[in-house]
């Protein structure tokens, strides 16, 4: 358990504390190398690539964009709702969001 946390602290992008999930999504969705993925996400968020790992910058921005934060902000999009906003923001499709939309009558 200490090993993955050591990696996250040493080298990771902090997930939804910052924008690590968004950069990872672009690596997976478009096979982007890390530099390209950071540039893509930074452009979409209108921040610098350094800001993508900066919790101070991303905390408020994530709440404003409705793309998920670590705390239980009342009324803020969570789970699939947050991911639907990520789809729009990054111009990608997310499988579970597609499935969710198909279930709506």
């Amino acid at each position: 358990m200490g090993m993955p946390i050591s990696h996250i602290m040493t080298s990771g992008m902090s997930g939804i504390r910052a924008a690590g999930d968004l950069v990872a999504r672009m690596q997976f969705a478009k096979s982007m190398r890390v530099g390209d993925a950071k540039n893509y996400v930074a452009k979409k968020l209108n921040v610098s690539t350094d800001d993508l790992s900066d919790e101070y910058v991303m905390r408020e921005l994530r709440e404003e964009l409705g793309i998920g934060v670590i705390t239980s902000v009342a009324g803020a999009p969570k789970g699939i709702a947050a991911k639907m906003n990520i789809e729009k923001l990054l111009d990608i499709k997310i499988n579970c969001c597609e499935k969710f939309r198909k279930q709506l009558k």
């Binding site: 050591s6 990771g12 890390v34 993508l52 790992s53």
Partner: peptide, 30 residues
């Protein structure tokens, strides 16, 4: 503990998933 230079962070993917928390075969699960 050391860390990468600011701005050089990279995404981290995982193997084994949540088994590292709830699993325990005398190796990596707790």
């Amino acid at each position: 503990m050391v860390g990468v230079e600011l701005g050089k962070e990279v995404p981290v993917t995982h193997d084994i998933g949540t088994i590292r928390l709830d699993g325990d075969q005398g190796n990596s699960g707790v």
